[in-house]
Design a protein around this nucleic acid. Structure first.
Length: 781
RNA sequence: GGCCGGGUGGCGGAAUUGGUAUACGCGUUCGACUUAAAAUCGAAUGGGGAAACCCGUACGGGUUCAAGUCCCGUCCCGGCUACCA
């Protein structure tokens, strides 16, 4: 008996695959393709963790499965390298992020190769490579040209720890997604992508995607479409506080979304009404007061002189409150503005209040409060003793104009950080932005000495004096010092995979048309952010004529986490981290690690690591390796059954039961003895999970790796087991010829004549039910 | 608070369309090999009972010849979301 030495076998095959460039893919017109990818990793200094292995192995199992079925398969790989960890490390140690990133990539590559993934290594990409981010900048310019990249001043989330603004999607529970520090609101001029232009399409096409419902629902909720009305409430003239600049007869109404910029002075001085958004215009007869957000843009023009001091104090306090404080304290607060408006339906004079339970960023920042129908309004009315009127409902469209609102905001992309893709913009002496001409791309990220950001609201790039100067059309300009949100870099990388070395374009039209959209995309993170952004860019570039499809990802597999043996999240500080490279080097090898992580449980659920079960998988592979050929056996039935089971299980991503089926098969073969064909089929079915061992077995058997097909005729046995229940309880089993199942009378007679069955049926039989498909008889007595 | 998952042996889990609950693996016990151990191989393994049998998929009801699976109610766990008018 040979000893199974995984490390030796694995090294041998990894060398062969490397030398042969075994997984290099190229377009072949007419040959069906398959493109698969994982969410590319951020190459951290810690190297691969078991979560990466699960994620990458799922993709690899599918990759090899479809390769063995003869499809033209592309499985590329890349690195998402811009971001805070490398920069923070640079600040701490003075090592350039460029250097650290290079080392980390080299380590990730080495480790991924040790796991035997069927990657086309000629297509490696890295988002911080100027050859790559040149085209990220090009993408930005396309959006800019169409007005979908724009600047505006507004209150934004600011992380005082990381000294940068954050997108809404990067604020979790009022805390920074990276460092966990509480975020603040800060008024700043920032760059945005106008994702809201695509809100409707992003929402409507979700239902057509083969994605997990969980993700689809999260995206729907994030976009948050509400259908309602905007209704104008005229301000009561007498409520104005004798300001000299009276609203003119050409007065206008404001419907400001506070994050959409600031209205002109003229608009404000002519303010004579408030527009509210409501999903219940039919309840307007019960609207007994109006509430505006503390940040409401027209607030100081509405407020009466008597109330001014108190209102401004309330506003200042509300702005100071952190998001956490606002969340923790659900107790309603607010103050009366001293102003009144007219309810257009009842013609009654109703008071205008300011309260922080109304959000500035949603709708118009003002609501009509209907305490009889809305719980929050009722709470507020009760606390401040405002009238509650149980009014009847009316026709929705009588007093307002239908309007659709979204929770989703535009995507804030400026980051006041060094280690990111420079935004290809420069400013003239008047401060007007100008795009960097495409032929001057890439705007290189300069090497600097001091990476530390400060509270100035500008990135460390502001200190790179030479780099700041740029000449456009003969005019001296100053570069933008903010860098792009890393999510911008990852919003188009899947298309770069089609032609990763293209120097003429971000992606090659022909190559894209052949390979994409991506057939399978696998990851366990970024349910809304990345997966929404990439859909947005896809739709935009489709509109520009650069992409021949409007959804970038056909099928999404969202895998669960692997936790520590104690069920808790793995973390360095808890000291419960399992290093996948240790598992390999301990002698188990990559095949065991891969197969174990597929066997650990359903791919989409979290699972806890169990070191002893790793040994069980190793024993299984060892048994595969040592299974000897015996000439006498005939296992066509179990063999074909196993082919079918494994094939169908992989198709439905039930990797754990596919491995279990292979274990059963091997157990069976050890009992009955294996034919050569059994060994060949075993190796072929095993290959997606344990490719090195399977390759070794196939070489020994002198076989190719073509995926086997099953023949239904072997799955039909001569005899079947007939189950007999009495009142639903299992009482007897009979081995009967399969043909007898066609003759119900004969079967029932045979069963009722049986002594063992008669023991239960002495008292008389009410009826018998024969279920041919289940090979089951139920006798009711 | 709202929405979505989930609750099955000592443990991870299986049961795909309402039809034999607990596949496969771990663990445990016993046996073989060995001076011994490891490794490996074989057998047993939901609970109760001497047995016939009985009880068992969070809990309480219901539908059905038949329920882990469908319906109603309750409890617990996880995720997302969180004053979005």
């Amino acid at each position: 008996m040979d000893r199974y030495e995984p490390l030796k076998i694995e090294q041998k095959w990894q060398k062969i695959w490397e030398k042969e460039e075994a997984f290099k893919a190229s377009e072949e017109e007419g040959r069906p393709k398959m493109m698969l990818a994982e969410m590319f990793p951020y190459p951290s200094g810690a190297g691969l963790h078991v979560g990466h292995v699960r994620n990458f192995t799922i993709v690899d199992v599918l990759t090899r499965f479809y390769r063995q079925q003869g499809l033209n398969v592309l499985r590329p790989f890349g690195y998402d390298t811009f971001g805070l960890p490398a920069e923070n490390y640079a600040i701490k140690t003075g090592t350039a992020p460029q250097e650290v990133t290079k080392e980390n990539i080299a380590n990730f590559r080495k480790q991924a190769k040790k796991l035997g993934y069927a990657i086309d290594w000629s297509r490696e990409i890295n988002t911080s490579d100027p050859e790559y981010y040149k085209w990220t900048q090009w993408c930005f310019l396309q959006l800019y040209k169409k007005g979908l990249a724009y600047q505006k001043e507004s209150y934004q989330w600011w992380c005082p720890e990381d000294q940068t603004v954050l997108a809404n999607e990067q604020v979790e529970n009022g805390k920074c997604w990276r460092c966990g520090h509480e975020v603040e609101k800060k008024k700043m001029k920032q760059w945005f992508f106008k994702i809201t232009d695509y809100a409707d399409e992003l929402l409507d096409e979700i239902d057509n995607l083969e994605w997990p419902d969980k993700i689809k629902t999260m995206q729907k909720n994030w976009i948050g479409r509400s259908v309602g009305s905007e209704i104008e409430f005229k301000l009561l003239a007498s409520s104005f506080s004798g300001r000299s600049s009276r609203p003119s007869s050409r007065g206008s109404s404001l419907s400001p979304r506070s994050d959409c910029g600031f209205p002109s002075k003229e608009a404000l001085t002519s303010l004579n009404s408030i527009t509210v958004f409501t999903t219940r215009p039919d309840t307007i007869l019960g609207a007994t007061f109006i509430v505006v957000a503390p940040e409401y843009v027209g607030l100081e023009y509405i407020v009466s002189d008597d109330a001014r001091e108190e209102v401004m104090k309330y506003k200042a306090e509300a702005l100071k409150k952190s998001e956490i404080e606002r969340q923790e304290n659900k107790e309603k607060t607010g103050v009366f503005t001293g102003a009144y408006a007219i309810n257009p339906a009842t013609k009654e004079k109703i008071p205008i209040w300011v309260a922080d339970y109304v959000l500035a960023g949603y709708g118009t920042g003002a609501i009509m409060a209907v305490p009889a129908y809305d719980e929050r309004d009722r709470e507020f009315a009760e606390k401040f003793d405002l009238p509650v009127v149980e009014a009847e409902l009316i026709d929705r469209d009588l007093y307002g104009a239908p309007k659709v609102m979204y929770k989703m905001r535009d995507w804030l992309i400026s980051r006041q950080r060094y280690w990111g893709c420079p935004i290809p913009i420069a400013y003239d002496k008047e401060g007007n932005p100008h795009p960097i001409p495409e032929d001057q791309l890439p705007v290189m990220l300069p090497e600097i000495e001091d990476y530390k950001p400060d509270a100035s609201g500008r990135s460390a790039l502001a200190k790179a004096k030479d780099w700041l100067k740029v000449e456009i059309d003969g005019e001296e300009m100053t570069r933008e010092t903010d860098t792009l949100d890393g999510y911008a870099c990852s919003s188009w990388y899947l298309w770069r995979y089609a032609s990763p070395h293209d120097t003429e374009a971000a992606w090659d039209a022909e190559a894209i048309k052949y390979w994409e959209p991506v057939d399978y995309y696998c990851g366990g993170d970024h349910a809304v952010a990345h997966l929404l952004y990439i859909r947005f860019w896809c739709k935009f570039f489709a509109d520009m004529g650069y992409l021949p499809f409007r959804e970038p990802i056909k099928r999404l597999l969202y895998n669960g986490y692997i936790n520590a043996p104690d069920g808790k999240k793995m973390s360095k500080s808890k000291g419960n981290v399992i290093d996948p490279l240790d598992v390999i080097n301990d002698g188990y090898g990559a095949d065991t690690l891969r197969t174990y992580e597929m066997f650990i449980g359903p791919y989409d659920l979290d699972a806890a690591w169990d070191t002893r079960s790793v040994g069980g998988v190793y024993r299984f592979l060892n048994r595969c390796y040592n299974l000897q050929e015996a000439s006498t056996a005939s296992n066509a039935a179990i063999r074909n059954k196993t082919i079918k089971k494994v094939t169908e299980d992989i198709h439905r991503y039930s990797f754990n039961t596919a491995v279990a089926a292979l274990m059963e098969y091997v157990n069976e073969l050890y009992k009955s003895g294996a034919e050569k064909e059994d060994l060949v089929v075993l190796a072929k079915l095993l290959k997606p999970f344990a490719p090195h061992l399977a390759s070794e077995m196939l070489e020994r058997l002198d076989s190719d790796d073509e995926w086997p097909k099953w023949d239904e005729k072997y799955l039909v046995a001569d005899t079947v087991e007939l189950v007999v229940q009495v009142n639903g309880r299992l009482r007897a089993k009979f081995e009967v010829p399969v043909d007898d199942l066609e003759d119900e009378d004969k079967i029932i007679k045979m069963v009722l004549d049986d002594k063992k069955v008669q023991k239960y049926t002495e008292g008389g039989i009410k009826k018998t039910i024969f279920v041919k498909k289940a090979k089951l008889i139920n006798i009711v007595v």
